[in-house]
Design a protein around this nucleic acid. Structure first.
Lengths: 253, 253
DNA sequence: GGGGCAAAGTTGTCCGGACCAATACCCGGT
DNA sequence: ACCGGGTATTGGTCCGGACAACTTTGCCCC
């Protein structure tokens, strides 16, 4: 039986955390290489002189950190020797991709079913010729004092009949599609780039055509990876920025 | 004592998971509003006729899902009634903020200690007058076939002496600062906006001044929230885009 | 009324034990 | 060589108990 390292002072970490540290060190040192198995719970109990409960608490930490993987009956396997995830950005719902979606409203100017042209198809990364419900409009701040962006949303034609009253609804369109069709958005890809403001968006926003603009393309994909919906937003470059905050997120150790 | 719901078949969920589901339902139903306290562990034991160990396993699930918050000696508090995190974007290190950082190199053109002017101070959101080590350069693709962006990094003056050989080092500068100073970056804030390419960056990149460009500001903050380092990147708008992928990530439940 | 201290209440840690379910492995039969 | 079954191994679940650490509350005293 080995004794886990502990500071003499009153600030010793709990036993299970010290055990986790020891195992982390062993993994980092290559004693348990990636792909190999960790000792069994019982063996760790005997080796360190602690109860199985404590061993399991330590191993749970390593699982949470993505260092090991456990399977009932098969043991624990090392799947990474890198330090734990250091920075995470968490979004609770697609609406929070942009924080403003909570406090803004979409004013729909037009909604019609169209066949995708060459240029539009390239813009949204999908083959031309397919039919989509195209919704265009302007997103305003809650107090309607300022225009946030020009919006073009392409919704797959199979959802078109569910959205005949879309201009009278509020809330994110993707949520409406999910609620009424029962199909879930499994993945979203967001692409941010800078480009010259196109004429249609410039007209709607009252800005100069060709001015620097932030273009945000969001593609909402179903389980098979096919797009259910694609949104293109044009923001005046001098008025809006997209901010994300990443916090360090590993335990005090 | 209440009995937790369970299917009659062989596919009943473990007891602690059913208890977690029951508590989730109670939170969603408003029986435990956001901000209020949950019953104590002992009370939940008595109410559902399970051991404290089982109650704690259930509560741990709710903590992991961000629904409740627990403090030793103070009880459990409901902090959200929304379903668990639906979409997450995980970044293993700040270098992966942009995937290209792995495969690019920074060519440093200049590094000198400067006093922050009015315009620069406003650009990086920090009062003027303070002294910083300003590093400028161009980031190239790995094969040096293309320029990725123009880079200006402001490092707090207290780290300047640690970076005298910065032009001969490679890897992310923030990692160098962390390793040599021992201070950790606790938080990073990234701001993406579109603007006209400024003259200095246009010269370095060989593009037209005033062309649409993607401006990315990253501020690296220490534990007190003060900036350790600020980076400003200018990307030619027609050549680069910033993409993030969000996958739906809630448990099967 | 304010400050300090004691007590009660609550969660955190740690031990013991028992049984169940999934997996891996050996071994014999074909 | 392949397939099946039985058995040992291993993690998952659940119970019981005890003490420690921390927070809140309220009382007492100044």
């Amino acid at each position: 039986m080995q004794s886990l390292p502990s500071a003499p002072g009153p600030d010793t970490l709990p036993l299970y955390q010290r055990l986790a540290q020891a195992l982390r060190s062993e993994i980092a040192a290559g004693i348990h290489p990636v792909g190999s198995g960790l000792p069994t719970e019982i063996e760790l109990c005997a080796r360190h002189g602690v109860s199985r409960h404590t061993v399991r608490a330590a191993l749970r930490l390593l699982v949470d950190q993505g260092l090991i993987e456990r399977r009932q009956g098969a043991g624990s396997r090392v799947i990474a020797d890198t330090p734990p995830v250091a920075y995470v950005h968490t979004i609770r719902s697609l609406s929070e991709l942009f924080s403003y979606t909570r406090d803004t409203t979409l004013e729909i100017a037009d909604a019609e079913t169209v066949t995708l042209g060459e240029a539009e198809a390239a813009a949204i990364h999908w083959p031309p010729g397919t039919r989509w419900l195209r919704i265009t409009g302007v997103r305003w701040t809650a107090d309607r004092s300022e225009m946030v962006c020009h919006v073009t949303v392409f919704v797959h034609a199979r959802f078109a009949e569910l959205l005949t009253d879309v201009s009278r609804q509020d809330g994110p369109i993707h949520a409406l599609v999910e609620a009424r069709s029962g199909e879930r958005v499994e993945e979203a890809v967001q692409e941010v780039s800078a480009a010259a403001m196109p004429p249609a968006a410039a007209r709607a926003l009252g800005t100069r055509t060709g001015a620097p603009a932030l273009r945000i393309l969001r593609r909402y994909l179903d389980a098979s990876g096919a797009p259910m919906m694609v949104a293109v937003n044009w923001h005046p470059g001098d008025r809006f920025a997209y901010t994300i905050r990443l916090r360090r997120d590993d335990e005090p150790a």
